[in-house]
Design a protein around this nucleic acid. Structure first.
Lengths: 192, 192
DNA sequence: GAATCTACTTGACATTTGTTAGTTAATGGT
DNA sequence: ACCATTAACTAACAAATGTCAAGTAGATTC
């Protein structure tokens, strides 16, 4: 269960024995079924999650009750409404398991403790936060610059497995288009 | 010159005499003319800027040589290619003065020193970083959800002075549309 | 297993946005 | 003041995306 997490961290920074013991102590393994909402809008995010297996999404409703998916993630990555998790302020987003998920979770309080007890985790936490920032910059720029078809092509090129695990309607919403438009684009690509 | 900066910080966290002395020591005032590029793509960002007066933008070129404006900012805010400034990695964006600018600038090394010497500045720096993150999240979601006209209406509602200071083509690019489209939208709004 | 849902697709049409080309207005340099 | 350059606007048309209504297939429930 912890192997994927330890590997992810080791890619960024070396871990000694003590670091590994601390990580196993603070990160709690949890299993959730498909469609389970694990953090709800209006609440302060309780945990930062590391995805061992499965797909998660962030979503919310607008005034008209329409649902918008703003983030989709897959193994092995961290997942949270970051800014609200870090600040411990109420988030306007729900976190939902798209598939059954194996996760490792940690509270903000424990993450801070872990960072003071492990220099490696301090370094690593910063890089996770920064990557999340780069990710949003990139998403904004792609939405501004690329066409709907280009955005879809780029997504499946980077995450080829997403189609087998995530409903098309969530992907459409995440890419900033209607399901009908994505359907049209998918057909066009299939037929050459 | 320092008043706007000190006021901005005080909105978030209290400053004692010593904090204020340190801030004035580390932040260097600079003046730039219109159209001056103050950080170039390919280089590691040297400074974090606080805008006392004037407008700045972040922009880059794509493969075809087309120019894209990804960020526009006005007083009184901080400005930088944040992630690359923090990491001290080469940025792919240029920073340009759209108008003549009065700025206060600080290097990454000095910012770190300042943060160890002033607890208030440590708190404040974190909040600047987090706001930049929230900002990108918001930009991405608005690009995904709102129409071009809605994005434009929202921008001028939030920053009514931007039209008098920033060329329309930069605004169009920043909003993810072509100048001709923005021109059409502006006419439509004028004629009711 | 029948009925019911729901996700996904399809097609016709409306609307929005991009493209191209030309015009006007404003700007900057000499 | 003149010329050259660029920004902004306009118009006609093309292409992309949204909307609405309907149909199909697969899943779920009873």
């Amino acid at each position: 269960m912890y192997e994927a997490l330890l590997n992810s961290i080791t890619e960024k920074t070396a871990l000694n024995e003590n670091d590994q013991v601390l990580i196993k102590r603070y990160f709690e393994p949890v299993l959730y079924p498909k469609n389970r909402i694990i953090e709800a809008e209006g609440d302060i995010p309780k945990y930062l999650y590391f995805i061992v297996s499965g797909y998660l999404r962030l979503f919310h409703y607008d005034d008209k009750g329409d649902e918008y998916t703003t983030h989709i993630n897959c193994p092995h990555g961290f997942f949270s409404a970051y800014t609200h998790f870090v600040n411990q302020t109420p988030s306007h987003e729900n976190i939902e398991c798209i598939t059954a998920c194996e996760l490792l979770r940690i509270t903000q309080a424990d993450l801070e403790k872990l960072q003071t007890e492990s220099e490696a985790m301090k370094t690593f936490s910063l890089s996770v936060f920064q990557e999340s920032m780069l990710y949003n910059e990139k998403r904004a720029n792609e939405l501004a610059i690329l066409s709907a078809e280009e955005r879809y092509r780029k997504l499946i090129a980077n995450y080829p497995d997403i189609l087998h695990n995530v409903p098309v309607q969530y992907i459409a919403s995440f890419l900033g288009m209607k399901p009908e438009s994505l359907s049209r684009i998918r057909r066009k690509i299939l037929n050459g």
